[in-house]
Amino acid sequence: MEATQDRSVNRAQMQVSDEVAIQITNMNKWYGSFHVLRDIDLTVNRGERIVIAGPSGSGKSTLIRCINRLEEHQAGQIIVDGTELSSDLKNIDKVRSEVGMVFQHFNLFPHLTILENLTLAPIWVRKTPKREAEETAMYFLEKVKIPEQANKYPGQLSGGQQQRVAIARSLCMKPRIMLFDEPTSALDPEMIKEVLDTMIQLAEEGMTMLCVTHEMGFAQAVANRVIFMDQGQIVEQNEPYEFFNNPQSERTKLFLSQILGH
């Protein structure tokens, strides 16, 4: 939580435009008969940095996984960059190539080197020539500050380094939106900072970000909106200062007292 406080965050570039990046209307999802997401309405504009918080099992992961169709929704509408997610495979591929995703457990490909992890999708999905893909990959590895690891395998890197590689791997596809699902939850405290720094840098460059995280310091420093979820519903949303200092609903107050209390 303190991790971000020794780095001054430059909010100058973080501008929210009027253009809509993601539009979710009346979206519902069930696992069998279990109603995980209920009547979700959410509009994300380009350049927004949204932090999603909430107790375990509240449906945060499920929500952001619906945005790139790792999970299918059963009712309502999700429009990403003007493309509606339906069972049409073409649309799904289009959305996925524009939305990057970072997972809690990194999910790097252990049989490929770091460089191969980064160039795989650009080469096979975007049909970028190998040389060019490698140059882009090295550019993003520099950016996440581990160019010297390019020829190692994921298993040889620390958790923090692996997560930064995972971020770089998404960036190599030049996404317009980035989704993060608890990117620092599997990391030791001293590695959390290096990953958050990378994410702050991304925010400073104007990336549209949706981030499930328990790092409230990050939320305060970077987010322009915090969404609180419970029992599959959006219970409260507000800009960070108001959210933390003046929560409205009882559930939010309880949640905040639990995670900030000690």
């Binding site: 995703m101 457990h105 990194f106 999910n107 490909f109 999708a121 596809m173």
Partner: peptide, 22 residues
């Protein structure tokens, strides 16, 4: 692990490419 399929999907690899490469 399921994460391997998910990472492949999230990167936009189609079924056959994901199978073949990942």
């Amino acid at each position: 692990p399921r994460g391997q399929y998910e990472a492949a999907d999230a990167l936009g690899l189609d079924y056959w490419k994901a199978q073949r490469l990942i």
